[in-house]
Amino acid sequence: MRTGSIYTETVVHLAPERFAADVPYQVAIIDLDQGGRITARIEGERVLIGDHVTEARAEGDISYFRKS
C-alpha cells in the first residue's frame, strides 16, 4: 500500500460529464513516502496540506487515498 503526505488539494464542484456524478470530490497531489508525487482522489474524511494518507483502493485509472 502506498502512503504519503498531502502537498496540495482541492474539492471539485464543477466536473466534466464523465465525473459529474462524483461531485463534490477531493483531488490531491501526494508526496509519496516511497518517493515521487502523484495526483489522486481522496475518499472519506477531507484532508489538508501535510496530512498523512494511505492508498485505499484503485478503480480503473483512479487511485483513492484515505487519511491515515
Binding site: 496540495t8 488539494e9 482541492t10 471539485v12 464543477l14 466536473a15 466534466p16 460529464e17 464523465r18 465525473f19 459529474a20 462524483d22 470530490y25 483531488v27 490531491a28 497531489i29 502523484i38 495526483t39 489522486a40 482522489r41 485509472d61 483512479i62 487511485s63
Partner: peptide
C-alpha cells in the same frame, strides 16, 4: 460540462486529468 472537458485537455490527460482534475482544480491546487 463539455467546455470543462475540452479545457481539461490543456492538462496532462495521462495523469492529472484521468483522476478528475479540471482546469479550475489545477489552479485551485
Amino acid at each position: 460540462a463539455r467546455v470543462t472537458e475540452i479545457l481539461a485537455g490543456a492538462g496532462d490527460t495521462t495523469s492529472e486529468v484521468l483522476v478528475g482534475s479540471t482546469f479550475p482544480s489545477l489552479f485551485a491546487m
